[in-house]
Design a protein around this nucleic acid. Sequence first.
DNA 1: CACGGCATGTAACAGGTTACATGATTAT
DNA 2: ATAATCATGTAACCTGTTACATGCCGTG
Lengths: 183, 183
Amino acid sequence: MALREVILTVLAHRRMTGYEIAHDFDRALSYFWRASHQQIYRELASLDKDGCVKFKVVPQTGKPDRKVYAITTRGRDELKKWVAEPTPPPQPRYDLLVKLMAGLLVDKASLHREMERVSVESRAILKQFRRMRRQCAGQPLETMAEYEQSLYLALRRGLLQVEAQTKWLGEVTEFLESGSLKR
Amino acid sequence: MALREVILTVLAHRRMTGYEIAHDFDRALSYFWRASHQQIYRELASLDKDGCVKFKVVPQTGKPDRKVYAITTRGRDELKKWVAEPTPPPQPRYDLLVKLMAGLLVDKASLHREMERVSVESRAILKQFRRMRRQCAGQPLETMAEYEQSLYLALRRGLLQVEAQTKWLGEVTEFLESGSLKR
DNA sequence: CACGGCATGTAACAGGTTACATGATTAT
DNA sequence: ATAATCATGTAACCTGTTACATGCCGTG
């Protein structure tokens, strides 16, 4: 149920249309959160109903009207309250882990192929994260507002996670190839 | 949509009742997958409808009848097919990351407290993982079937993830305390 | 006598995904 | 011509969560 708060957060940073929020989730915020535009429009309607956001209709020529949303005082209060609440630990639900167990029981050859594919993918993502981080590091600290700093920390988390994942995949591959666990 | 396959996987290992599956998710499989008994009963009904599992009713005295489920050939085929399919990368949706960004914008004091709470929690989980891993490591390799080996690898993944998480929390805490990013 | 364990379920609701819909403009 | 971009939405479906329901047994 955090999509509501994600939207409030981006609106606390600056006013935007639903379309722009969806667009940001596909680009700059893609390693931060993801949601379809349908989901965002639905949630914005619900936030508006509860008085947490308000909007102005900005007519355009040739294009559909824009609804520019802004957070309200009530929305800001709800967000503050939410920040103070204890965060539930994330549930472990990782398809590849299931595939590992299933594959060992029913089809090792396919499992091998799929693990190899994911390993390649994972190393590519790792490269990309490292490149992005170098880009960020090139920027002087003073020019970074809090918003950008938290994006940097999100990126940093992604990098640490992918590093751990890549290491794990290496160990699993070794296990699948040698047929025994190393410890 | 992997709950279906998780259930097929545990049934490929041994026949069980829905109650036992739910119980295992709360214990041995808790760092592997989680689901409520309601969800499991619903999914078992759907799997039965599709001919992927079958069951025998075992009457008991004093207790409700047990429905002992087993995987069918069709179920095994479906599982094989699924193992060979490319696994979609997991979506990044981490509430604490949202809280970090939201907190910087609306309430730094609450954010600080919550981050501290999660750090403590995270270090406790790390300790627990390490203890479990030592327990596993004490066991001779030969006695471990493939099923147990994959559970060990699931545990290993959990450990690596929590290590990365703990490291990240350390960096975030330092950032919150010093007010600037270190790089 | 209250509570937890065993063992099954139904019903309502919340959140995420997919498909469908509109309609002008600009780029290939 | 065709596709992509801008900008909004509705509707159906699937999955996950929460609440409610039954009924016997053993333990404190």
